[in-house]
């Protein structure tokens, strides 16, 4: 059967989130993605002609805060969660696709 999501699309999505996947995994995910998409496609059968698009589900609006500065978290605490740091900066590898 033809897949809604082909392996090319799977590989593109994997690239966008910087995940390396094998050809075999691409095949597997192609099938899994397709069944998820097909399942959600059932929603297309509902008539939404006069229904405005929803952008949130909590029915809240205008949740705002005043422009007041509050103390930040300590850098030491923050850097504990970083895999690597140097002189107070987070140290990261040179980015894929960078010059």
């Amino acid at each position: 059967m033809t897949q809604t999501i082909d392996t090319k699309t799977v590989k593109h999505v994997a690239f966008l989130v910087r995940l390396g996947i094998s050809e075999e995994e691409a095949q597997t995910f192609s099938g899994q993605f397709s069944s998820i998409i097909d399942y959600f496609n059932m929603l297309n059968e509902v008539d939404t002609e006069n229904v405005p698009p929803a952008s949130d589900i909590a029915n809240a609006e205008n949740v705002l805060r005043e422009d007041v500065v509050k103390p930040s978290m300590s850098r030491e605490e923050f850097l504990k969660n970083a895999p690597n740091s140097e002189r107070g900066y987070v140290k990261v590898p040179t980015v894929l696709g960078d010059e």
């Binding site: 930040s72 850098r75 923050f78």
Partner: peptide, 13 residues
């Protein structure tokens, strides 16, 4: 200093 005005929101925790 670097990383002195930060919190869980702006560092994406």
């Amino acid at each position: 200093e670097p990383n002195s005005n930060i919190c869980p929101v702006c560092t994406g925790l």
